[in-house]
Design a protein around this nucleic acid. Structure first.
Lengths: 198, 198
DNA sequence: CAGATAATCTGAACATTGTATAGATTCACA
DNA sequence: TGTGAATCTATACAATGTTCAGATTATCTG
């Protein structure tokens, strides 16, 4: 009888699962992963606290879903940063590589709470990330550095793990206050030395 | 009247502050930093839940105290690992350097929950760690590599941040399942390449 | 189109948590 | 020895994760 704005009735939400995930992201962003409350998430969405149990087994399952989404979005940010640098020169290849690392670090320092949720042991990644976009982008960038002659094939060997470890470690140590923020460019230079990049 | 085994009465604990910290460490070790309960800590020590508020402002303060202790102990482990390698040769200097990294990684994989508490944003380090033992050991090890001629002075520049970032990042990514465990030696080799070590 | 069945959400309840406050117990010192 | 300070307990309260019975709506069957 009463006209409704929503697509569906107000009793059935329609897309509660992703609404809960988005609300959880917003709350973690504000208050940190350890202060996330299922009841606050439900209240933000406008639903009863019990409703989430139809989509997630428990609170940890919701957190894991958030982690999966955040990991995808981080990879999207890196892809976006790469795509902003055009050209086939050695210079642009190097810039793409650096843009990836800078995007990773920038996300860590602007969203430390999301970073902590993703990498702090709160969620168990269901997807084995070996063939994830994040790995692929890094691998392709290293391949490009080889093909344009910036690094050698032998130096490229095991480059992924060194690069990701150093960028991730610096980001983590900096947002937790163990390392000053200006150390990140130094780490980036050290990475390039490790790759024999000139 | 009744003979007592304890040094003090059973009402006054005697050294409640450190007992609470040790009990908290044991519980975090088992169940993770996010599932630590003040009440469980108190119960383990055999004390009322309110008693801890005479030594710690709140739960976060107890966690921070735990973090400070853990950081010190990690540095102790590294010092211990270094001290097991004797000699003044290039070889022993290199071994000491590697022993430090290996000790760090070993602690991370054997005590992932303690590692998460220390580096996962749960505690706010009160002590500025710039002059901490962990920094000093790393700095001295790098100096030694220079003095025995294993790395150059220019490569040593900013070596601390690269080394700590890569070792910490690899440890973190491995215990969270983002990276296979066997990647750590590769990261160590990459670090040594970055330092120009031969 | 009507009725049954399944999907979705609510309400109330329970145990557990962090924390505040008032009071009990014990220590240390005059 | 007794008085004040330090230390711990008891109780209480609001908030949290989770369960379960039932209410509401969607969807499918005839």
């Amino acid at each position: 009888m009463v006209p409704r704005m929503a697509v569906v009735s107000s009793y059935h939400h329609g897309d509660l699962e992703s609404a809960l995930v988005e609300a959880a992201i917003a709350l973690v962003r504000k208050y940190g992963p350890d202060h996330l409350s299922l009841r606050a998430v439900s209240a933000d969405v406008g639903v009863s606290p019990s409703a989430s149990y139809h989509y997630f087994q428990d609170k940890d399952a919701l957190i894991s879903a958030v982690g999966t989404i955040l990991f995808d979005r981080l990879a999207d940010l890196q892809e976006q940063a790469i795509s902003k640098v055009s050209g086939n020169s050695m210079r642009s290849a190097k810039e793409r590589f650096q843009a990836m690392g800078n995007a990773y670090f920038k996300w860590a320092v602007t969203e430390p709470n999301l970073y902590r949720l993703l990498f702090g042991g709160f969620c168990e990644m269901q997807e084995v990330p070996q063939d994830h976009k994040a790995w692929r982008l890094l691998s392709e960038s290293l391949d490009e550095l080889v093909s344009v002659g910036l690094i050698s094939k032998s130096a490229r060997q095991d480059g992924e793990v060194l690069v990701w470890s150093a960028v991730h470690g610096a980001s983590s140590l900096i947002i937790e206050g163990f390392m000053p923020r200006q150390s990140f460019p130094e780490v980036l230079r050290g990475i390039q030395r490790s790759l024999g990049m000139k």
